[in-house]
Simulated assay, not measured.
Amino acid sequence: MSDHPGRVQTPSPLPRALSTSDLREAGLTKRQIATAVRQGRLIRLRLGRYAPDHTPDIFIDAGRWGGRVDCVSLLSYLGVFVHTHDAPHVQVDRHATRLPPRPARVRCHWRSSSAPSASLAVEVVEALAQAVLCQPARHAIATLDSAWHLGVVDVEGIDEVFRRLPRAFRVLRTLLDPRSEAGVETLVRLILRTLGHRAELQVVIRGVGRVDLLVDGWLIVECDSRQFHSEWEAHVRDRRRDSAALAQGYCTVRLLAADVLSRPDAVRLQLQSILDRGPTVPRSGTSGRGPRVEARGSRLRGH
């Protein structure tokens, strides 16, 4: 990762606007610029600002509105988990004037940015800090876990996010765990924490394989989504894993990602009911001394 705190590695350079002077320095004449716009090879954002035709629409829109892609909009574009993304989030310089009209649904974050003036997106650390402010605490933790796990931000970047936030948010730092491979895993882990149970992430169990969460050493919790469970072969593999786990005395509950996201209270009650009953059979070969675990999922650098 970068040696500079808060600097991150993104999948590719984020889009930037091109000024008329940029295009002229590249050798284009005024007539050639106009022709490129007419032919669709250049997109005019605002007076004197352009973008190449391959620029994603979200950045084109932000540029036309006089801002930069920000918060959950940028993070969603980068593949980071966000619970809800139903409107564009755009950073606008607080002293900006004569801005073009924009749809009422656009969420504007009026603040300065450390991003280069030509950038059509804020820096990722800025977006993460803003996303913490814009989301409920649990959703914000899931977003931070996701960004960290994916390598979109490193440990120095995470620390920089919290330096940019009010002190009251620093308690969230202690709840992060980049071993969560999906946002729903983080949300389930936090539910289990409120129920007073210990959940281990990405545990490898002999004869079963790696499981999403292992609770109190006996309950396996798997978070299933359509993305990875749409084919019959995936269901067959999961049933065989569940049978192998049951043979060793583990119980498995499979939660639907859609339920975790939209019906968290029902999921909480379901988990509470299962955990209150406790394990029904002893695990074979354990004599009550704990699970037959080969290894736990490795932590990412810096955690």
Rank of each mutant, 00 (worst) to 15 (best):
V188H: 06
V281M: 10
P178Y: 07
S114Y: 01
W232G: 00
R41P: 00
I58S: 05
A118S: 14
D224F: 11
L190E: 10
A258E: 14
Q130H: 05
G207R: 08
W148Y: 14
V153P: 00
Q227A: 14
A234L: 04
D276C: 07
V253A: 08
R107G: 00
T174Q: 14
L78Y: 13
E156F: 03
V80N: 09
V236A: 08
R193S: 11
R24W: 00
G290K: 12
A26K: 13
I33G: 03
G63S: 06
R289D: 00
H149N: 15
R240A: 08
G207V: 06
L213N: 09
T55N: 09
V92K: 02
R46Q: 14
R198T: 14
G297D: 05
A258R: 13
P56G: 10
I274E: 02
L128C: 15
A266D: 15
V281H: 11
L300F: 08
W65T: 05
D159T: 11
E233N: 14
V267K: 01
P88E: 06
G67L: 07
P5E: 15
R173M: 01
A34R: 12
L213Q: 13
T252K: 03
R283T: 00
R16Y: 04
F162G: 00
A295T: 13
V171A: 11
S119F: 02
R41N: 13
W65M: 12
H197M: 07
P282A: 05
A257H: 02
C71N: 15
Q9N: 09
T35H: 09
T280D: 11
I220M: 12
Q227G: 06
F169Q: 15
